[in-house]
Computed example of a mutant assay.
Amino acid sequence: MRRGFTIPNVDPFLLWLVGVVTAASLLPARGAFASVFEVLADLAIALLFFLQGAKLSRQAIMQGLGKLKLHLLALASTYVLFPLTGLAIDPALKGIMDPALVTGVLFLTLLPSTVQSSVAFTAIARGNVAAAVCGASISNFLGIFITPLLVGLFIASSKTGQGFDWGAVQSITLQLLVPFLAGHFLRPLIGSFVDKHKKMLQPVDRGSILMVVYSAFSAAVVDGIWNSLGIADLLLLLVVSAVILAIVMVVNVVVARIAGLPREDFIVLLFCGSKKSLASGVPMAGALFAPAQVGMVVIPLMIFHQLQLFVCAWLAGRFAKQGEVLDAPKGDTIPHGADEIAAAAKARGIAIPAECEAGVESNLALLSRHAATLRGERP
Rank of each mutant, 00 (worst) to 15 (best):
G183M: 06
L210E: 06
L269I: 07
V255Y: 02
A41F: 02
G359S: 08
G183T: 02
R206Y: 03
I172E: 00
M62S: 13
A292Q: 12
A216G: 03
G376K: 13
L106D: 09
G349P: 03
G331C: 07
G281R: 09
L237P: 08
L15A: 15
G317V: 13
P188F: 01
L142W: 01
S171W: 10
V151D: 06
A132R: 09
G104C: 06
M200G: 04
A365E: 15
A358Q: 10
I7L: 15
G53V: 00
D332Q: 11
R263H: 07
A41Y: 00
L48G: 01
K276Y: 05
V151G: 05
G135Y: 06
D11S: 04
S208C: 03
M296Q: 13
L108V: 14
V360K: 05
T85K: 03
R348M: 09
D327A: 11
Q175S: 05
R375D: 06
C312W: 01
G163L: 08
F154N: 05
A343S: 13
A342R: 13
G143Q: 07
L261K: 03
L309P: 13
V169A: 13
T333V: 15
F154H: 04
C272S: 12
S218R: 02
F145T: 05
G376V: 08
L176N: 07
L234H: 07
R3E: 14
H336P: 00
L364P: 01
G317A: 05
G86D: 00
H305K: 06
